[in-house]
Design a binder for these strands. Structure first.
Length: 146
RNA sequence: GCGGACGGCCGGACGACCGCGGCAUGCGAGUGUCGAGGAAAGUCCGGGCUCCAGGGAGAAAUGGCGGCGGGUAACGCCCGCCCGGGGUAACCCGAGGGAAAGCGCCACAGAGAGGAGACCGCCGUCCCGGCGGCUCACGGACCGCGAGGUCCAUGGGAUGGCAUGGGACGGCAAGGGUGAAAGGGUGGGGUAAGAGCCCACCGCGCUGGCGGCAACGUCGGCGGCAUGGCAAGCCCCGCCAGGAGCAAGGCCAAAUAGGGAUCGCGCGGGGCUUGUCCCCAGGGCUUCUCCCGCCCGAGCGAUCCGGGUUGGCUGCUGGAAUCCGUCGGCAACGGCGGAUCGAGAGGAAUGGUCGUCGGCGGUUUUUUGCCGCCACAGGACCCGGCUUACAGGCCGUCCGCACCC
RNA sequence: GCGGGUAUGGUGUAGUGGUAGCGCCUCAGCUUCCCAAGCUGAUAGUGCGGGUUCGAUUCCCGCUACCCGCU
């Protein structure tokens, strides 16, 4: 089951971790630290849209489509112990055909959890990004959930 | 039929599968039920509600409003009417009090921009000229015997004349010209020329009658031009307004100190006639003043509460509600009766994939077919308004023009 | 939820109701062997829609965009 993310700190932490850009959405993912007190089998997801997406109707519609896509894909293919954040993009999130939007999420998930990609391990960012304050997940190599 | 004015309404429908939020029920799986708008928006006004401020009166400051009457809980909203402006009309628009309380501004142009002014111009008097007459003197020519007459030239004089030139002094403000605006307008009389100088009408001011609750209208009398415009410049007049906002506010639990509250005892300076005396007080309680009332002022004791943080409950939706009928009212609206309950979340619920129909656009000679698209926009304490956004469509009333009967 | 402010050439900014200025940038010319600098000149602007006024960047109303407070 999906837990909904609503604390600002969780969003900020996810924003400092893995990011992927897809035409229909921005994707962020972070493996939680054990010390955070959240049960490790939980999988959490957050949705957000900035004012650039549009007025309240446009933002709500983008978040609903992201929610539906997360319901279909993330509950099946997401990893326990991770936080995911899905961010709406102006125009595209609401206008993109649904199957394309769904494929965007699948693609981002695969890019995040592929073991041979450095970007899957935020522990050693090649671009010299400042290291994250919460270190424990840096040593864990993500693996596919069975 | 075409064009136009005004008012009101709808703003996709039905269905399938997988999902979402609240409530009820169930041990549970689940089941049942309800689930965004006309603007929910902007936050521009007005209220309810809650807390804060001791009560009353006045003032100041600040902000707002501004024809009159009505409606309303109230309003800057609505209705009706008046006045002014626009339109052939239906109808539309108007921050629509005061400019003789005061201050300020009116660029440029123009002579002059506010108790104004004289550039061109008009008129009078005088002076210097011009023209044509009159008259005198002298000269010449001609006619006549003569007295004399006629004509020409020069010079002088006086008075009057002119479609006449220039100047000085004075009168005038009609006309030209400048300007957004030139110190009432039109016409006539009058005059040297003119002018409210006089007269008529209009406008303006004062005043009386009548109609109207009133704004105002209308009829008459008087005055005789005095009062330019701007107050969405300062300002004056009248009216209105205490502050904060549901993250208001209330309750509970966890957690516990340096502060706070209540009660009891107690309390300033000066004067002498030493008294249960008199006088003066200080500070606080809405920016100030006044009146009333209250408290503090100095410590001690007792009792109670408790900062910050986190969570839960409540406020929370039945209300100036909506609909129908009826009565009063031109209307806004109000009275009465009946029926109905239609989101209450707490980072926030309506989505995805389709089907049929509807609408719009494109393609097509047309039909069919195919393709694309579905206005503005999402409750967060609740109401009444205003403003702004809005694909497409529906209904009603009225006006103008053309045609037919 | 409650309030406040700003909008002026491409850019940064002045501006008493009366022709909207200035610096940088851009362009052209001069200067130089060439460039830079310098000199001369030019282009280009009041966010939008109404209203008041003879006249609005200025005053008033309504929108739009951006920014900033408080809770």
């Amino acid at each position: 089951m999906l837990d909904i993310l609503n604390r600002r700190a969780d969003f900020l932490a996810a924003a400092r971790a893995v990011r992927h850009t897809r035409p229909g959405l921005l994707f962020q993912a972070r493996r939680r630290a054990e010390a955070e007190g959240v049960a490790p089998e939980r999988l959490r997801v957050g949705f957000t849209c900035s004012k650039k997406v549009g007025n309240a109707v446009a933002r709500n519609r983008a978040k609903r489509r992201l929610r539906e896509v997360a319901r279909l894909e993330l509950s099946a293919n997401g990893l326990a112990g991770w936080d995911y954040v899905l961010i709406g993009r102006p125009g595209a999130t609401a206008a993109r055909p649904f199957e394309d939007l769904r494929a965007d999420l699948v693609s981002a998930l695969r890019a995040t959890h592929r073991p041979d990609r450095p970007s899957a391990r935020p522990s050693d960012p090649p671009s010299g990004r400042p290291a994250e304050g919460t270190a424990p997940q840096n040593t864990v190599v993500p693996r596919r959930q069975s």
